[in-house]
């Protein structure tokens, strides 16, 4: 299953009048199926806000977000949660694994939320952990994993529900450069290997250069950036 994302005229404004803060201004872009896109920019440029809107965590002020033709920009409540559950896989900056669960259980949480088959989920979790080189750590509690292992478990969790979009927020923030690069390469390999759409927010240009395309944000506005520029 391939994913196509079309963002059109997307804006997010906090407050109103003179105190209005335009976090994202009139952003438009489209992606190809199987593409891995990096969004770069300084802190406060609006890249995480953009990611949150695409991932159904924030509702835009204006504009549309079409995922395989369906506008998800103005979903609310339960529908928004269902979109996140079915169509989106997240890799968060601080990995955010549940500390009292093992690596395998952290993957299966996605299934527990979605009420899927436990047996099928268990098999999928095992398969993903094997592919991520974590088969031997499946039974380790999240607190017993290294930073790199945690991020790889987080990648597995993001892929667990076979989502259309994999959204990644600063995945190397807590890792050294070598381990960070390994994690991002592993992430890109997993996403592209499954023909998903990957969007990674990062301020690390070295990591961004691993993506197929780089979008740059400044003051809430999006600029296409040529590779190597």
């Amino acid at each position: 299953m391939t994913a196509t994302l079309e963002v059109s005229g997307l804006s997010k404004t906090y407050g109103s009048g003179e105190q209005a803060v335009h976090a994202v201004r009139d952003v438009s872009f489209a992606t190809e199926p199987g593409e891995f896109v990096a969004i770069v920019g300084p802190s406060g440029s609006g890249k995480t806000t953009l990611l949150a809107m695409i991932g159904g965590l924030l509702t835009p002020t204006h504009g549309s977000i079409r995922v395989r033709g369906r506008d998800i920009a103005h979903l609310r409540g339960r529908q928004q949660a269902e979109y996140r559950r079915r169509s989106v896989g997240y890799v968060f900056q601080a990995n955010n694994l549940l500390p009292f669960l093992t690596a395998r259980e952290n993957l299966m949480v996605v299934n527990a939320i979605g009420r899927g088959s436990r047996r099928a989920a268990s098999a999928r979790a095992r398969q993903l952990l094997e592919e991520l080189g974590l088969a031997s750590r499946a039974g380790a509690l999240a607190t017993q994993l290294s930073g790199g292992e945690k991020q790889r478990v987080a990648i597995g969790r993001a892929l667990m529900n076979n989502p259309e979009l994999v959204l990644v927020d600063e995945p190397t923030a807590s890792l050294d450069s070598q381990r960070g690069r390994q994690v991002v390469e592993s992430l890109i390999s997993e996403v592209k290997g499954r023909d998903k759409l990957g969007i990674m927010v990062t301020h690390d240009m070295e990591m961004a250069l691993l993506a197929d395309r780089i979008l740059e944000m400044h003051d809430g506005e999006l600029h296409q950036r040529a590779r190597g520029a």
Binding site: L57, A81, E82, R84, R85, V88, L98, V109, I113, N161
Partner: peptide, 16 residues
């Protein structure tokens, strides 16, 4: 709170 936020981001409903 942060764990609840993560679970919600993963699609868990408040009712769940």
């Amino acid at each position: 709170i942060s764990q609840i936020g993560v679970l919600k981001a993963l699609g868990a409903s408040s009712f769940y």
